[in-house]
Simulated scan of single mutants.
Amino acid sequence: MLQRLLLLCCALVVLAGCAVTTVSGPQSGANTPQVSSGPGTSQEIARSFVQVVRTVEPVAERECRARTSEVNCDFKIVVDDRPDQPANAFQTLDRSGRPIIAFTLQLIADARNTDELAFVLGHEAAHHIAGHIGRQQQNAAAGAVIAGSLAVLLGGSTEAVEVAQRRGAQVGARTYSKDFELEADALGTVITARAGYDPVRGAQFFTRIPDPGDRFLGTHPPNAQRIETVRRVAAGL
């Protein structure tokens, strides 16, 4: 199933002239196409994904350019072709600073409708627009400095100071991670809606993933809080 989906995505991308590549390592509502590994065929799933990218990517780029001049707004969408990867999507940067948004095959196959795919794309684009990678790196560096300095003041050995710095960096990186996720949910809602999809319907995938709860130094907020954020922002639109 996943291998066929990958081949179809690649073929449709070529035909559509869409900026989607593979890497190793519409309107919403009653007529929204269903995207599922159950009743949907590989061809239907692949076409839906490519259509979502073609529709949402330019909207995300417009929002990016309207909100900041400090980052590269030329998004590149890639499909992680490793069949053993779980359903996931993430945002990163290449060596030139170009934003990369990656979808695993399993996430594409597991999405129940195009609204979910659109919301995930909008959410990941929002991480870049808000500069979350750079802010997280700054928080990690600050945590390392503070923890290392405390270890020095307490007379720790070189090894103890290094351990403190590593742990401080981990804590620092997680300090505002929940806030970052909620920020991305909010801006992702705007992008999804302006692309013509239903962000509230799209955020329903939160009901199917494990709830992280409200753990201290957890990386993600409770699912209910994320869904409420999407509903609140969507209502404001």
Rank of each mutant, 00 (worst) to 15 (best):
R194S: 13
G156M: 02
L2W: 04
P222T: 09
H128G: 14
S96M: 11
P86E: 12
T41F: 07
A195M: 03
V78C: 14
R194Q: 15
R4F: 09
A66K: 13
P210I: 05
D74I: 01
A195D: 01
S69A: 11
P39S: 11
T207Y: 04
P212H: 10
V78G: 02
D74A: 11
T189Y: 13
N88S: 11
D211Y: 04
R226C: 09
H132L: 08
T104M: 14
L15I: 08
T207G: 01
M1D: 10
E63L: 13
A11T: 08
H128Y: 13
P33W: 04
L12I: 02
G236K: 08
F206S: 00
A102H: 06
T41S: 15
A147L: 08
S48I: 04
R54I: 00
L187N: 01
Q170P: 03
E124R: 13
Q51I: 05
A19D: 14
A60G: 09
L237G: 13
T158L: 12
V145H: 05
S36E: 00
A195E: 06
R174W: 00
H123W: 06
A235M: 08
F49E: 02
I209E: 08
A193R: 15
I108C: 00
F205S: 02
G236R: 06
I77M: 07
N31D: 11
I100C: 05
V79L: 15
G148C: 11
T104A: 12
L217W: 01
A89W: 11
R167A: 07
